[in-house]
């Protein structure tokens, strides 16, 4: 059997639709990840042990276990215990969001800790509280510094989102697998999917590279 570009074109609209779901899913997940990740990062560097411990447990768990296992536990494990009917798309959003929060928390923590100690001291010496110093002095600087790694995390998330096809959300990978099953055209199905993933990730990779270049220029200046 040879490669049939015509079939790929036929597959395209259906897969394109799935790609939009993939983008929406990844974007919502990174948004969840940023909000939760920031809170977890602040807990991880907090002076209080009661805050640090659960935050560390969180990042250890979500970074130390496979996303696929997490999705399975969420979609099949929890309904077994709590007796409810799982919803695939909802579990996809939640699972991917919780997972990215673990990674984003580490990115934020590293970003915050990369800010010179003198910044905190200057802020505190003016009478600012710990939280005021964080909000007005440390975080605005840290956020700029974490933009490139955050961009990379988003790209990783876009690709990892293909795993949710296993629990049945109809995103790009799920649709490619469906086409494969119904047409026995695996190459056309998966190759078209691969191209669509590339179309999404390549511009983002470029964007991150530009951010990194800008970042290194402003670092040299200061």
């Amino acid at each position: 059997m040879t490669i049939d570009p015509g079939i790929m074109l036929e597959f395209l609209p259906y897969l394109l639709h799935g790609a939009i779901y993939t983008i929406v899913l990844s974007t919502v997940a990174i948004a969840i990840g940023i909000v939760m990740g920031l809170i977890i990062a602040l807990m991880k560097i907090a002076p209080l042990k009661v805050l640090r411990w659960p935050a560390t447990a969180y990042t250890d768990f979500f970074r130390g276990t496979p996303l696929l296992v997490q999705l399975m536990m969420l979609h099949y494990g929890l309904p077994q215990i709590f007796h409810y009917t799982p919803v695939a798309w909802l579990d996809a959003f939640i699972g991917l969001g919780l997972n990215s929060a673990g990674y984003v928390a580490e990115i934020f923590r590293a970003g915050i800790e990369s800010i010179d100690r003198g910044q905190t001291e200057a802020a505190r010496s003016l009478g600012m509280t710990y939280m005021q110093a964080m909000r007005c002095v440390i975080l605005p600087q840290a956020v700029r510094r974490v933009l490139p790694p955050l961009g990379n995390e988003y790209i990783a998330l876009l690709k990892d989102s293909s795993l949710v096809s296993i629990i049945g959300m109809s995103e790009l990978m799920f649709r490619a697998r469906l086409l494969n099953g119904s047409t026995y055209r695996p190459f056309e199905a998966f190759f078209t999917a691969a191209i669509l993933y590339l179309v999404i990730t390549l511009p983002l990779t470029q964007l991150v590279a530009v951010m990194e270049r800008k970042m290194s220029i402003s670092d040299k200046r200061s």
Partner: peptide, 9 residues
């Protein structure tokens, strides 16, 4: 401070 510690942003 010795190192000024102005807020660079």
């Amino acid at each position: 401070f010795q190192s000024f510690n102005l807020f660079p942003h």
